[in-house]
């Protein structure tokens, strides 16, 4: 089948569109809770906390936001809906940080290694990345190092055809490190600008599979000095609090350089990513907002947080 036609909307709008269901409930609920209240009582704070938890921010992150609001309540008058909303937004932005640098692709052959649990959207993300860079006139090679899942290599090959990127891959069951080695060699020989490595999905609790990833990372580092230049963890926006444990384990074993948040076109907000950023200090680098080839975007904290909060009443575009 053909890929879906690229959506014509701008990404901000699309992100907001994707987040809109959440936005409705979040903003509306916040409004419902706060509007018309004379003072912010502990009960109201409890309700706000619940609201944050329902966005998958988790108990800890929600607590820090509530603490902040409580603090600000003492310092200045935070009593109306807007100032509370802004207060939450401010705190979240503080956590995520606003300096958003894109992918580090300055090396002659820049290597991006993509990891994550099963079904997070690794292969799709790689397909979109390949399309993006090929379109920019860069030469991309894809390494099909998911040699476990049936037809994973074929799936990547189809993405390769769509984007025009070369794909190095063998049959299912091949040694993934060998694929990485051959792909790195081929990328250098072909003078590729970017090598993207697709790995098999794995739960962070499988020690031997984590070891396999470490080996792949070592192998590519030997072939191309400094590689991988980006080690990205792909995270499904619907994931709950387990994502923090996942990210911690992947980071500990493989030293991540950033996160990719996928499937933000649903109603999930990926609130857990904020908790991960808070705990591990990892930047969110890319977000996936749809199934089309163009639906992968650079992350922008300001946009992300405000998209989460924009209500119908102050929609700007």
């Amino acid at each position: 089948m053909k890929p879906k036609p690229p959506n014509k909307l701008g990404w901000t709008k699309r992100l907001r569109h994707g987040l809109s269901k959440t936005r409705h409930s979040f903003v509306h609920n916040l409004e419902r809770i706060v509007r018309g209240q004379r003072a912010i009582t502990p009960e109201i704070l409890d309700e706000i906390e619940e609201l944050l938890i329902s966005a998958d921010l988790g108990v800890n992150t929600s607590q820090t936001v509530i603490d902040y609001i409580q603090q600000e309540l003492k310092r200045r008058e935070l009593k109306d809906y807007l100032s509370i909303k802004n207060g939450i937004q401010e705190r979240l932005l503080q956590i995520i940080g606003t300096n958003h640098n894109g992918l580090n692709l300055t090396a002659t052959t820049a290597v991006i290694m993509v990891l994550g649990v099963n079904g997070g959207g690794k292969t799709t993300t790689i397909g979109k990345l390949a399309y993006r860079y090929q379109k920019q006139g860069k030469k991309v090679v894809l390494a099909a190092a998911d040699t476990f899942r049936a037809a994973a290599v074929e799936q990547l090959k189809i993405w390769g055809q769509r984007s025009g990127a070369g794909v190095i891959g063998y049959q299912t069951g091949a040694d993934p490190s060998a694929v990485v080695y051959d792909a790195a060699t081929a990328a250098k020989a072909r003078g590729a600008d970017i090598l993207i490595i697709d790995t098999a999905g794995r739960l962070h609790t499988k020690k031997n599979l984590m070891e396999e990833l470490k080996k792949m990372k070592r192998v590519v580092g030997r072939c191309i000095p400094g590689a991988p230049h980006e080690t990205l963890l792909v995270l499904d926006a619907t994931t709950g609090q387990n994502a923090i444990i996942q990210a911690r384990q992947f980071h500990q074993d493989l030293e991540l350089s950033g996160l990719v948040l996928t499937k933000l076109d649903g109603t999930a907000k990926g609130g857990v990513a904020i908790g991960i950023v808070a705990e591990l200090g990892l930047p969110i680098k890319l977000i996936g907002v749809g199934e089309g080839l163009d639906d992968l975007q650079d992350f922008d904290a300001q946009e992300f947080v405000s998209a989460l909060f924009y209500g119908e009443d102050n929609e700007k575009d």
């Binding site: 938890i53 329902s54 966005a55 998958d56 649990v117 079904g119 499904d236 926006a237 619907t238 994931t239 709950g240 609090q241 387990n242 994502a243 996942q246 649903g266 109603t267 999930a268 609130g271 857990v272």
Partner: peptide, 12 residues
Amino acid sequence: ADALTGQEAVRV
């Protein structure tokens, strides 16, 4: 349904 799903599970 994915056991890793968060609060979203109910909406889904």
